[in-house]
Each structure stands twice: as C-alpha cells, then as structure tokens.
Simulated scan of single mutants.
Amino acid sequence: MKNVTLALAGAILLATGSAALAAGDLGEFSNNCAFGLTKGEKKFTDCSVQEKIDGKLYCFSKQSAKEEFMKDPEGNLAAAEAFYNDNQ
C-alpha cells in the first residue's frame, strides 16, 4: 500500500509541476514585460497583468506598463519585437 501511495503522490506532483510550467509559457516574448522590451529591458513577469492583441497574449510587469503600452500598441509592439529578436 505504501508503494501505491508514493506512486500516486509522485504522479500528482509531476502533473502539477507540468501544469505550472505550461501556464508559465502563456505569453509572447517568453513572458517578459512587453512594455519593458520597448525600453530595452527584459523583465520576466508572472503574466498576471496581460492583454490580448490579435489573438496573442502579452504580459506586463504592472498595470501602468500595460496602460503606457496600449497608448500605441502597434508602435510599441514593433519596438518590443525588434529588441526581443535582437537579444535572444
């Protein structure tokens, strides 16, 4: 019985860890703050502040960063993509 319990506990732990990892890969730019990238900074986020643009999810480090980004989403997206692609 102990082996079955340990096996079940391991399976649950593995499944939970995999789900957390998958959730961490939700946003574009590997979950870096999209506005930070426009400023030449990589800031990894938990993606709790986010915005969908053309079906893609973008993460932000804080609400004010998202608000600034959304003032010019097209221009900011181009700047973020350029910096991110040049600094992979």
Rank of each mutant, 00 (worst) to 15 (best):
A22V: 10
K39T: 12
T38A: 03
I12E: 00
L13W: 08
L14W: 05
S18H: 05
A34N: 09
N32M: 11
L13H: 04
T5C: 05
E51F: 02
N31P: 11
G40W: 04
L37Y: 02
E51G: 04
A22I: 09
K2H: 04
T38V: 01
A15M: 14
G10K: 03
A20Q: 13
I53C: 03
A7L: 11
K39L: 08
A19Q: 14
Y58S: 02
L26I: 15
G55H: 06
D54N: 13
G36W: 02
Y58A: 02
K42E: 09
K42G: 03
I53K: 04
S30C: 02
L14I: 15
N31Y: 05
K42T: 06
G27Y: 01
A23L: 12
I53W: 03
A11N: 02
Q50K: 12
N3R: 01
G17I: 09
G40R: 02
G40A: 08
I53V: 14
S18L: 15
G27R: 01
Q50T: 14
F44C: 04
M1N: 07
T5D: 05
T5R: 10
A9T: 09
G36K: 00
K42M: 11
K52H: 07
L8S: 12
A20W: 07
L37G: 08
Q50W: 08
L21P: 00
G24D: 15
T45G: 04
G40I: 13
G24H: 09
I12Y: 00
A34D: 10
L13C: 12
T16S: 12
K42Q: 12
S18N: 10
F29P: 10
V49R: 05
N32K: 09
F29K: 05
G36I: 13
L13F: 09
F44G: 09
A23S: 13
F44H: 13
I53Q: 06
S48Y: 07
A15E: 08
S48L: 12
L26N: 13
C59A: 15
V4I: 10
N3T: 01
F44P: 10
E41M: 14
A9S: 08
D25H: 13
F44Y: 08
A20C: 07
K2S: 05
K2Y: 04
D46Q: 14
L57E: 00
D46M: 12
F44V: 14
E41S: 13
G55N: 10
F29N: 06
C47M: 09
S30W: 03
I53H: 04
I53L: 13
K42S: 10
G36R: 00
L13P: 07
D54H: 05
A11Y: 01
F35A: 05
S18P: 01
A9N: 03
D54P: 04
L6N: 08
Y58E: 04
L6I: 10
L6V: 06
K52F: 06
K52M: 04
A11G: 08
G17M: 06
E28W: 07
A15S: 15
T45D: 07
L57A: 03
G10W: 02
L6S: 04
D25L: 12
A9G: 01
I53G: 01
N32H: 15
Y58L: 14
C47S: 12
F44A: 14
C47K: 06
E28M: 14
G36C: 06
V4W: 05
A19L: 11
A34I: 00
A23D: 15
L6C: 05
N32L: 12
Q50N: 10
A34G: 05
M1H: 06
N31C: 11
M1L: 03
A11M: 12
T45C: 10
L6G: 03
